[in-house]
Amino acid sequence: MTAKTYSLAKSRRAIQWIGVIGAFVLGLRHIMPGEASRGGSFDSFCPFGAVETLLPYILTGHTLKTTNLLNFSIMLGVLGVALVAGRAFCGWMCPLGAIQDFLAAWGRRLSGERNHMRGKASKARFPIHMPAAADKYLRYAKYLILALILVASLYAVYPPLYEFCPVRAVFGFKMTTLLWSVLITFIVTSAFVERAWCKYLCPLGALLAIFNKISPLRLVVNHARCNGCGRCDVECSMGIQDVPERLRDAECIQCLECLETCARDDSLSLKLGWK
C-alpha cells in the first residue's frame, strides 16, 4: 500500500452510503403521487433498465413501460466508469452491492467476530465459503440470466426483471408478495455468502465483467515485492483466490480492499495505461 495515512476503505464506504441513501430517496419518491410527471419512475434511474429496454427501443422506437430514455444516460455513466476502471461501479457505487457488504459485516458480527483484523481470516461462522465446484459453476449463472433477459425483453411490455428486481425489493417501498420473498432471500443469502448476488446472479455485473480485461486504470503487482502472504485473498469479498495473479479477473469488482490490506509497500499499486 503506497499511502498508509489514506484509507481507501473509508472513501469507498462513504461513496457506498451516498449510493444507498440516493436509492432510498428514489424509493421514497416512488411512493409519492405523480412521480412519473417529475422525470420518470423508480425504474428509469436503473442502469440495467437500459439493457432491458435496449432491444425493444432499437426495434420499435419505444422503451418498455416504467423505463425511459434516462435509463440510457445512467447506463452511459456506468459504462464510463467501466471503460476507465472495469467493474468499479459494482465495488464502489452500486447500492445493492453496498447493502450486501453491510449484511456480510453484520453476519460476521452476529456469528462471533468481535474485531475485524484486516488480512486475518475471520473466526465468524458467517459468511460461509461456497464449495469450490459449486462456486465455479454458479458464477456462470449471471451470464445466462443476462442472455435470458435480453431474449425476454423482445417480448416484454415491462422490463423482464420488473416483478422480482432486488433493487425494487430493497429500495422500492412498493412491495408485492414476490418482492417480499426476494427481499428476504436477498438478506439471508447476503449474510450467508459474501456478495452472493454479485457473484452468481447480477446480470449488470455480467455485462461489466468484460471491461475488467480492457480498462486502463487497474491494479498491478510487483512480483519483486509480493511475498505471497495471502492477506489480500482473505479480504476479497468476491472470493478470488491468489489475487496478485488474477488482478484482471472478470469477477473482480475493483473494491481495492486487497490494495488496502497489502502490508508491503509497492507490492500492489494502481496504474493507468495498458502497458
Binding site: 503506497t2 489514506y6 481507501l8 471503460l83 488496502e260
Partner: peptide
C-alpha cells in the same frame, strides 16, 4: 502510477462525464 487517493475522484468523474 496513480495514488489511491485519486481513485474515487477518477471513477466519480467518469460517471458524471458520461452521464
Amino acid at each position: 502510477k496513480i495514488h489511491p487517493r485519486h481513485y474515487p475522484t477518477i471513477i466519480l468523474a467518469a460517471f458524471v462525464v458520461f452521464l
